[in-house]
Amino acid sequence: MCGRYTITVTLEELIARYRADHVAVPFHAPRYNVAPGQLVPAVVNDGKANRLGVLKWGLVPPWADDAKIGSRMINARAETLTERPAFRGAIRRKRCLLPADGFYEWKASAGQKRPYRIRLRSGELFSMAGLYETWTSPDGDVLHTCAVVTTAPNRLMADIHDRMPVILRKEDESLWLDRRVQNPAELRRLFVPFPEDEMEAYEVDGRVGNPANDDPLCIERKAT
């Protein structure tokens, strides 16, 4: 599961990293504790260029009766994307990149859950594979939502949790965004765990458990 993450960069850095030709982000500041239900930056491709906008984290399928279902759809298991009604349409035609520079996971230890931040050793931005959908309420309100695709853990993550987000190599991002690719089998090779030797994990303070805490203290290493 991926239930919290960080994206501690400026809007200008996001635009440069993804070479976005069209930007529809009303406001962005560094985020240290992104939580489900919030608006998050996302990248899609319109067939010609990358577009940077925002989606609400928690996917609401077009057929849903109530938008509240999104609270249960923050993650999508890579192994069952073509089986789940909520995701089998999106995997074929509505894929996005969810930029991040770290994510949090809680490790069960001695009857407690201790939060860890996991990131690339390089400290670089990376792209989590995402799915998105558009839902229209009975009153005509339109909601654009997303979910993070998850996979089995690498050896680093296995010590912390039994799932991790699908982190895409830069060279694979264009394939994930390519709307012409509608056969899920062509994407299966992307669902492997990211190499553990390129990642690191460190314990952080329990204050990240409260989404109201969104500041640089969230990402500081906990003193041992």
Results as ranks from 00 to 15, higher is better:
16 A>L: 06
219 I>E: 03
8 T>W: 08
86 A>P: 07
26 P>V: 09
47 G>P: 05
32 Y>H: 04
166 V>H: 04
32 Y>L: 09
53 G>M: 13
102 G>A: 11
160 I>Y: 02
21 D>R: 14
161 H>R: 09
20 A>H: 05
45 N>I: 07
111 G>I: 07
92 R>D: 07
64 A>R: 10
159 D>H: 13
1 M>D: 12
124 E>R: 00
160 I>G: 05
120 L>N: 01
39 L>Q: 12
180 R>T: 00
13 E>M: 09
77 R>L: 05
87 F>D: 02
123 G>T: 03
146 C>H: 03
165 P>L: 02
83 E>L: 06
173 E>H: 04
3 G>S: 12
164 M>I: 05
202 Y>E: 08
173 E>Y: 06
221 R>I: 07
204 V>E: 01
11 L>P: 02
37 G>K: 09
59 L>T: 06
82 T>V: 14
197 D>N: 14
152 A>F: 09
60 V>I: 15
182 Q>I: 08
150 T>I: 10
218 C>I: 05
104 Y>E: 02
58 G>A: 08
88 R>F: 03
146 C>F: 08
114 R>K: 14
47 G>M: 00
141 D>W: 10
42 A>V: 11
204 V>H: 04
63 W>F: 13
163 R>W: 01
198 E>L: 14
161 H>S: 03
137 S>W: 05
181 V>R: 03
98 L>K: 03
177 L>P: 04
216 P>K: 09
141 D>A: 14
109 S>W: 14
210 N>T: 07
163 R>A: 01
104 Y>Q: 01
79 E>S: 12
204 V>G: 06
129 A>Q: 05
202 Y>S: 06
128 M>G: 02
120 L>Y: 05
147 A>K: 04
9 V>H: 09
158 A>V: 10
142 V>A: 09
139 D>A: 15
170 K>D: 14
195 P>W: 09
132 Y>C: 03
113 K>R: 15
38 Q>G: 13
54 V>R: 15
49 A>M: 15
64 A>D: 10
159 D>Q: 15
145 T>L: 09
160 I>S: 04
120 L>G: 06
205 D>K: 12
60 V>H: 10
57 W>K: 07
158 A>R: 12
45 N>D: 13
2 C>P: 05
38 Q>V: 14
77 R>E: 04
112 Q>G: 10
161 H>V: 05
63 W>C: 00
199 M>A: 07
114 R>E: 13
12 E>K: 15
216 P>M: 11
111 G>R: 07
93 R>Q: 12
193 P>M: 08
192 V>C: 13
